[in-house]
Amino acid sequence: MLGRPLLRFVRKDTHINFMRGRYMGLLVSAVLSLASLILFIHPGLTLGLDFKGGIVVEAKTPAPADFGTLRAALAAHGLPHASIQSFGAPDDVLIRLDAGSGKETQTLVDTVRHTVADALPGTTILRADAVGASVSAELFRNGMLALGISLAMILGYIWVRFEWEFALSAVVTLILDLTKTVGFLVLTGFEFDLVMVAAILTILGYSTNDKVVVYDRVRENLRKYRTMPLMELINLSINETLNRTLAHPPRCFWQPCRWPYGAAPHCRVLHGPCCSALWWALLPPSSLQHHCCCSWGKAASSAALKQKQERPPPPEKKALPGWEKLPPRQGFFRVPLAPCLSLIRRP
């Protein structure tokens, strides 16, 4: 049953001239990223509980929540600043308070709990979180550290694995991706918290993934078609991998997309990240432009590349111990690690 494929995204003789739009693509991308940067500075990201500190209490009321009663009750307990909002269903209430001093925050959460339970009898508390100011600062630092180090590792890997021209364009496009993602978060107002850090990293990981696939192909074609003009060659590479580029995102997008529906409304923890994943699905068109942009970067150094194209196995590889025994294609890493690693790829 269904032994043969029924569908495919693009015909196999697709030849779209992506490189023709390279300046336009880069310009649009740069403008968007710049706009995102401006958005990042003002109004800036909405920090979530993890990074801002404070209290979040989620409650399910027996009847549609009466905000007036709740607000009055909270004000009576000296909490007039509490923000009360509903989310998902009308009987789901979310109460937030900003962080005070450490100790206060931890006792206030109990006050809020009791107040809600007293004001609206029969209410179940779904979630009650309190994060002290010192902890939130620490979480923020750790989160940024994790993000930074992970990014550095990704770039380091590309740098080890590919020539520096690729690494450079990877850096540029990754920055473009990152800024746009941040811009998206500012625009949509999703809370930026620890889970979002993981989501951003996943988005960037996928975006790197796309780049790696295209770069791999560019590199392969550089070896295969030694005389082809660079623009044409990059165009060919993008077209050849187009099916995969288009095929990959939707699934990763369909899946997380299920979260908001399947998990609504309580899994709001993951709502933001999922929508960001959805956003990522929109990236490939732009990411194609990134390829153009990256190739633009490469074109700038095309003289150097041409040189490389013309000299069969790069001399530096020869110098490394263990390389002599391997035929050129086998060369996997540019570091001596290669002979060991090549073992895993022999069927």
Binding site: L139, A146, I149, S150, I154, V195, V197, A198, G205
Partner: peptide, 24 residues
């Protein structure tokens, strides 16, 4: 290509595990 793309993701997430906190 598969090893490349997975290795980058692996590196990133191992770092995230080592340096991350809580849900991450």
């Amino acid at each position: 290509t598969i090893v490349d793309s997975n290795a980058t993701a692996l590196l990133a997430h191992v770092m995230l595990f080592v340096f991350g906190t809580g849900p991450v």
